[in-house]
Nucleic acid binder design. Structure first.
Lengths: 136, 136
DNA sequence: TTGGCTGCAAAATATTTGCAGAACA
DNA sequence: TGTTCTGCAAATATTTTGCAGCCAA
C-alpha cells in the first residue's frame, strides 16, 4: 500500500497502529466483499496476533469515516466494501460470489412521486440475484 | 383470515397446526416487514404457548414454498415480507421504518452487456435509503 | 397410525463490550 | 504523558438444532 494512502487515513483522524495498517492494506483495492472473519483471517497471515475485537473496532471506525460500506446482501454475516463510490452488486445463487456492477441508477431512472409517496431518497443499493459467468 | 387462504396453504403441502394458522394470520396482508421476534411477539398474544423454534420452522417452510421473502435490509436481524410480488423497499434512516415501493425495475431499465459481464439476472432487490414522509 | 410439528433447552454463530495493559501522537 | 487502541475473555443477540412427546391427516 502506498504511503500516501496511509497518510490519507492519518489525515482523516485514524491513529495508525500496525494492526490498522494491516487492515487498510487488506482492504485496499479489495473487490471480494469480505466479512469480518475474512478480514480477520486475511490480516492474521501477516499480523498473527491481531484480535477480532480490533477488526470490528477498525471496521466501525472506517464506517464512521465513510471509508467502508456495509453491504445488505448476506443475512448470515455482514460483508464490507472498501469501494464507496456508487455501485451495485450481483450475487451468484450457485457459488455465492458477490460481484460489482457499475451502473448509475439515478442517471437512468427518475423516480416519480407516485412511487415515492413522500419518501426522500438519499442513496440506493441494488442486489441483482442470478448466475455468474463462471457458473453458467 | 379467509378459509380459502388457509386452504391454499394446505394445498401447498402445509400441515395446518393452530400455531401455523396463527402465523399465517399474522403475516396475511402484513406490510410491516417483521423480524422473527416481531412475529413471535405478535403471535404470542393470540397463541401464548408458541415457541421461537416454531416461528423459525414455519418461516423456513414458508420461504421454501415461496410464500415469504427474506429481506436484505437490516444487518442486525432478518426481516420477512409476505408480499412476494416484485417490489422494492424504502428504509427511513431516522425511524428505521421499512416501506414498500412498487416500481418495475426491469420495465424501466434494460441492463446492457457492459454492465453484466456475463451475469444472468434472475431477480433484483432495491433498497432506497433516505427519510420517510413522517420524518420529513 | 405415523410422519411431521411443537416446545423446551442447549448449541452454534456473529457481534459487542469491559477492562487492563500497550503504544501512538 | 495522555488518550486511544489492542487483545483477551465474557456477554449479548440471533438463529439453529436435538429430542421427547404430541397431533393433523
Amino acid at each position: 500500500m502506498l504511503k500516501e494512502s496511509i497518510l490519507r487515513y492519518k489525515e482523516k483522524g485514524f491513529k495508525l497502529t500496525p494492526q490498522r495498517i494491516a487492515i487498510f492494506e487488506y482492504l485496499d483495492g479489495n473487490t471480494s466483499h469480505p466479512s469480518a472473519e475474512d478480514i480477520y483471517k486475511g490480516v492474521k497471515e501477516k499480523y498473527p496476533t491481531i484480535s477480532f475485537a480490533t477488526v470490528y473496532n477498525t471496521i466501525q471506525a472506517l464506517r464512521d469515516k465513510g471509508e467502508v460500506l456495509e453491504l445488505m446482501i448476506d443475512s448470515k454475516r455482514r460483508h464490507y466494501d472498501p469501494n464507496v463510490s456508487p455501485h451495485h452488486h450481483t450475487i451468484c445463487m450457485k457459488c455465492n460470489k458477490i460481484g460489482d456492477m457499475f451502473f448509475d441508477f439515478a442517471e437512468k431512472v427518475v423516480l416519480r412521486d407516485e412511487h415515492l409517496s413522500g419518501f426522500e431518497v438519499l442513496s440506493s443499493q441494488i442486489n441483482f440475484y442470478g448466475t455468474c459467468g463462471d457458473c453458467l
